[in-house]
């Protein structure tokens, strides 16, 4: 059932990539109008390879697009963190930092995967995620240690999003099986690296890690209300014209 674990991972990348793509043309400065789609493209690219590989392993005649466009909310398995609406620029950058601070060490470890395709993805994605940490981390620092307003917004972003971070370290039963088989790294082993990255950025950004009540459920298809709207928009053409080729 390795394909289910790969679909979870692909869902994380696609949904976050989709969220970042919503910024295109609306960013605070032209440089970010270029950087945000760039990061979105990294994530969507990784999602495509993972869906494609999952479809091959599943061997049920589904394509990457079937997986992306023809599953409903309850079938999506992404983390709650990645589906959160963009909010302001502080929230978008913090969400990116939280995700990338997990994925960089995750993909780094996945370079030793027993699966050749996963190894291939890992080589490319670990470099991309290291860059996302740098980009998002620098913004979290600038905003945390910028003006009074930006510091308030950054603290609010932490308040808003930190509760979704515990889910990063949880493995679904499908993911656990792939971890045992050496296909994917064990998620709970990434915690130390993630903590270190966040501590480093937060100390420079004058932010504190809050006490939170963790929210989870994405891996069981139990999402926030926001995901349904995202999918309705994303899947509109495939749903309106079933079977058409685009």
């Amino acid at each position: 059932m390795a394909h289910l674990a790969l679909i979870e991972l692909a869902d994380d990348h696609l949904i976050l990539g989709h969220r970042l793509s919503e910024w295109c043309g609306h960013a605070p400065m032209l440089e970010e109008d270029l950087a945000l789609p760039n990061m979105a493209l990294d994530l969507i690219g990784t999602a495509r390879t993972l869906y494609d590989h999952a479809a091959t392993l599943e061997d049920a005649g589904r394509s990457e697009d079937d997986l992306a466009f023809l599953r409903v909310e309850r079938e999506y398995r992404n983390l709650l963190l990645v589906e959160r609406p963009n909010g302001d620029f502080a929230q978008t950058m913090l969400r990116q930092l939280y995700f990338a601070a997990f994925m960089a060490p995750f993909w780094h470890a996945a370079q030793d995967s027993s699966d050749e395709v996963v190894r291939g993805v890992a080589g490319k994605a670990s470099k991309e995620m290291a860059y996302h940490i740098r980009h998002a981390g620098e913004w979290v620092i600038r905003l945390g240690d910028g003006t009074e307003e930006s510091a308030e917004r950054m603290a609010e972003a932490v308040e808003e999003l930190h509760r979704f971070t515990d889910e990063l370290f949880e493995s679904s039963p499908e993911a656990e099986a792939t971890e045992t088989a050496g296909v994917l790294p064990s998620r709970d082993r990434i915690r130390a690296a993630w903590d270190a990255t966040i501590a480093e950025v937060f100390s420079q950004a004058a932010l504190e890690v809050p006490e939170v009540y963790p929210q989870t459920g994405g891996r069981a298809g139990l999402h926030g209300e926001c995901l349904g709207h995202l999918l309705a928009e994303m899947q509109y053409l495939q749903r309106a014209y079933p079977g058409a080729t685009w």
């Binding site: 696609l14 989709h18 793509s21 919503e22 295109c24 789609p37 979105a40 493209l41 969507i44 690219g45 999602a47 495509r48 869906y51 990457e64 697009d65 992306a68 466009f69 928009e233 994303m234 509109y236 053409l237 495939q238 058409a244 685009w246």
Partner: peptide
């Protein structure tokens, strides 16, 4: 961009 009909089209349009 958010309504592109396939992943390939979405990436190309972005």
């Amino acid at each position: 961009i958010t309504r592109a009909p396939s992943l390939k089209r979405k990436a190309a349009l972005l």
